[in-house]
């Protein structure tokens, strides 16, 4: 990764990531409040923490962007004093890698809602994997662990699949995405 990304790609990725880093930071207390209700309703919100990778990829559509965005967003949340401290960085790395792998598996050629959802699910699995060591979730009662996994995955599909795709669609309407995407062939042909 890296060689293919231009400075402008990187800067745009990071700014998207940091905006979501701020949202991640604000999401923490909300998640906390919902979590006290018990029953893993809060897990539906968890998908928000995968969104930077998906949105950045859908905007820029280049290899490496998803990973960079998720790590940058986690780094952002960390330096703004996020509640989970360094743990955020590890989760960010894992989730970013997972989403990146999905996009790579489709050779960076697909940008639809399905692929966004798949990336979200992959990120959810990555976070669950880390939580196995970090949160002892294997030691929850079986039904409870299944509820946790199920709601987290559902949340991932809803937020980082459906919602992020809609968000990027609205962004495309503003024309800003053209800045970071290659110009169309027709435009080059028009040069003669």
């Amino acid at each position: 990764m890296g060689k293919g990304l231009k400075l402008s790609d990187i800067l745009v990725t990071i700014i998207i990531a940091l905006i979501f880093g701020v949202i991640y930071k604000l999401w923490g207390p909300l998640y906390g409040v919902v979590a006290t209700l018990g029953l893993h309703l809060e897990q539906l919100l968890y998908g928000m923490w995968f969104i930077a990778a998906v949105v950045a990829y859908l905007v820029i559509r280049k290899p490496g962007v998803a990973l960079l965005a998720e790590v940058a967003a986690a780094q952002g949340e960390f330096i703004f004093g996020g509640e989970w401290g360094v743990a955020t960085l590890i989760f960010g790395l894992g989730q970013g890698l997972a989403a990146e792998l999905i996009f790579a598996a489709f050779r960076y050629k697909r940008y639809d809602m399905l692929i966004a959802s798949l990336a979200g699910i992959a990120a959810a699995f990555a976070s669950l994997g880390i939580d196995f060591y970090y949160g002892y979730i294997g030691d929850l009662a079986l039904w409870n662990m299944l509820v946790l996994c199920g709601t987290r995955i559902a949340g991932a599909v809803l937020i980082s699949g459906v919602f992020s795709h809609l968000l990027v669609q609205s962004l495309e309407k503003t024309g800003v995405t053209n800045l970071v995407r290659p110009a169309a062939k027709e435009d080059y042909q028009a040069l003669g």
Binding site: V12, L167, L171, L179
Partner: peptide, 11 residues
């Protein structure tokens, strides 16, 4: 607008 503005500015 906030997102698109920020992207433009970053660019």
């Amino acid at each position: 607008p906030l997102l698109s503005q920020s992207i433009r500015r970053a660019y």
